[in-house]
Design a protein around this nucleic acid. Structure first.
Length: 579
RNA sequence: GACCCCGUAGCUCAAUUGGAAGAGCAACGGACUUCUAAUCCGUAGGUUGCAGGUUCGAUUCCUGCCGGGGUCGCCA
């Protein structure tokens, strides 16, 4: 389906070529969204300098030469030389009809199918998931959905912390409790308690500490009984993670778990391959690599530590093994790391070393999808009243509870069974949307009132717009599918404004995807909702003045609802039909 | 000390890769015998941290300051 802006840009380029055949420079002929018109073209300003004329005169000339019959109803010159365009209503109507018949609602597929490995969520075994896992999980899930929506092959990887020295202590604690009791404690989700008890014993009892140390050695040595206990811990944690993901409504499953331990057997080869590549250096008893361009506080080269003094490996080694695995076995062409900003330097060192070692071909891109922290109203990292980190499950439960109370108050007619189902969609949706709707690189302030509000850029506002449309169709007596035969006729300005925005879904999705910035899709959907509600207030649908107008408006409603639901789905948010 | 990120209306945030600074709250004024008023319409609100530079044009790019956060070798 042709994007109107693309068609216009081509016509503008043609007009310029005709008027100024001698100009060979690349010109910005793009038609951009504008506050003052449907689109604006800014080519005249740059061109004026090249041809030595006034921008306004150049713009006038282009406006005259420009052939936009059947596309634009008006072209005006404004300001220093902006071309303001108004699209023709019949043209927009025809494009809407195309979009409505497209199962992808106008969103074009990727020209080349990428194999995208997305690394996100990454909780720790035997530890509670807390608010610190929210952003990675939610942003990662949205990116998974967006990539899939345009046809990429997506591999989800949940890189859980299932290895390392803490497991000596955890396994010993498990033994102390007895396997049966320990499993029960873990399965009810009291991971925090389990971990804290183990930690406390480790710090207080030298005897326990000794056992824990010995247990680490057994674990690393592959002792069968120790491995069995370790697997028990991992399995119980996985079961717990699954319940959290279920509650949160993200696509992660057990099949996506790739614990650090998976890479254990590859760590030796990371070392040998780095040594063969002549990158490995022994420094202070550790085996390290010095990638170019990284310095420490003394301005000396900063190493990436591959093997510690004590012979153990650390996370840099695992991360490098991951890169090898993703490139050589999974054939990744794009690797996304959805992890917090503090890891920026670490990841760029990993990339530098992997490139130096020849493990990362030019054709494979690696991107750090970084994000800021969730803050409390005091603008510090969000903590519970007791000062602990906020448990993710408790946060989500509270969201659903608050949503349910809100529904009970505002729509008492909704049956209780529906109320609970809808409360989940609204509560969870509100939390996710609050996380996704602001620029991920920045911190954001967690605020129940604001995220659950029906005003402003919130999930409930978008969901409400969707629910109102569904309500219209329940009364309309016609099916949603039937409206897709109709070519909308746009007469009212708010119909025109809505139509224009509906046609930009494709570019909104791609814009968000290319920047790995879901908030851009949020902004689009919010603007779509405001344009729809504005239309809703001004243009009666079921009581439209004519049958033609009624059908036309139903078609606009249907397409709006589909794009809202589809867009929210890409963000991992459900759109209830009633609320 | 070095490097990275952030700084936009009173508050919370946008701004499509250099194009005419926009929303929502809060404030004020309007609109429900109406398809869900859980909403809408209007008014007001700005030296985009500061100072330079590049450009026809800078919130955006460059330099230097100020303020906040982060990172800087054996945790992940």
């Amino acid at each position: 389906m042709p994007d109107p802006a693309v068609v216009v840009a081509q016509r503008v380029a043609a007009a310029v070529a005709q008027l100024y055949p001698d100009v060979t420079e690349d010109l910005d002929t793009a038609a951009r969204p504008s506050e003052r018109a449907d689109a604006q073209v800014n080519v005249a300003m740059g061109l004026a300098r090249l041809v030595g004329k006034k921008p306004h005169d150049v713009a006038e000339g282009i406006a005259v030469a420009l052939d936009l019959r059947g596309i634009c109803s008006e072209v005006t010159v404004a300001g220093p030389g902006f071309l303001n365009l108004t699209y023709d209503n019949d043209y927009l109507g025809a494009l809407l009809h195309d979009a409505a018949r497209d199962p992808n609602l106008g969103v074009h597929r990727a020209a080349t199918t990428e194999t995208v490995v997305i690394d996100y969520s990454a909780p720790n075994v035997a530890k509670e998931m807390h608010v610190g896992h929210l952003r990675s999980t939610v942003i990662g899930d949205a990116l998974v959905r967006m990539c899939e929506a345009v046809g990429h092959r997506v591999i989800r990887e949940n890189h859980i912390g299932d290895w390392g020295t803490p497991f000596g202590m955890l396994i010993e604690h498990l033994i102390d409790l007895g396997e049966v009791d320990a499993a029960r404690e873990l399965s009810v989700g009291d991971l925090d308690g389990f971990y804290k008890q183990a930690r406390a014993k480790f710090e207080a009892l030298p005897e326990f500490q000794q056992r824990a140390r010995e247990r680490v050695v057994l674990l690393q040595g592959g002792d069968a009984d120790t491995l069995r206990l370790w697997k028990l811990l991992v399995a119980e944690s996985a079961r717990y993670f699954a319940t959290v993901y279920e509650k949160l409504g993200v696509k992660l499953t057990d099949a996506d778990l790739r614990g650090e331990s998976v890479y254990n057997d590859l760590l030796v080869s990371v070392v040998t391959r780095l040594r063969d590549a002549k990158l490995l250096v022994t420094d202070n008893g550790a085996e390290v690599v010095f990638p170019a361009g990284f310095t420490n506080r003394d301005n000396a080269p900063l190493p990436l530590i591959i093997r510690k003094q004590d012979g153990g490996y650390n996370y840099a080694t695992t991360d490098l093994a991951c890169v090898i695995d993703r490139v050589e076995h999974l054939r990744a062409t794009l690797m996304l790391y959805v992890v917090g900003t503090p890891q920026a330097q670490h990841l760029s060192m990993i990339e530098a070393v992997a490139r130096d070692a020849g493990w990362l071909p030019e054709s494979t891109r690696m991107a750090h999808v970084a994000f800021g922290s969730v803050l409390g109203s005091d603008r510090k990292m969000l903590k519970s009243r007791t000062g602990d980190s906020v448990k993710l499950v408790e946060l989500l439960d509270e969201a659903v509870q608050r949503a349910e109370a809100s529904i009970a108050e505002k729509n008492p007619e909704l049956p209780v069974a529906d109320r609970q189902r809808v409360a989940r969609m609204i509560g969870i949706g509100a939390v996710k949307y609050a996380d996704l709707s602001s620029d991920r690189i920045k911190d954001y302030v967690f605020d129940w009132e604001r995220m659950l509000s029906f005003d402003g850029n919130t999930a409930p506002y978008l969901q409400y717009a969707h629910a109102r449309i569904c309500s219209i169709f329940r009364r309309a007596g016609s099916t949603r599918e039937a409206t897709r035969q109709t070519t909308p006729v746009l007469s009212h300005p708010s119909e025109h404004a809505l139509a224009l925005w509906l046609l930009q879904y494709d570019s909104a999705v791609w814009d968000a995807l290319e920047r790995y910035s879901p908030h851009r899709l949020c902004t689009y959907l919010y603007e779509l909702s405001t344009r729809y509600t504005s239309f809703y207030e001004k243009c009666p649908v079921l009581k439209a003045e004519s049958e033609v107008m009624r059908d036309s408006r139903l078609a606009l409603c249907d397409l709006t609802a589909r794009i809202l639901a589809d867009g929210l789905q890409m963000l991992g948010i459900d759109a209830p039909e009633q609320m």
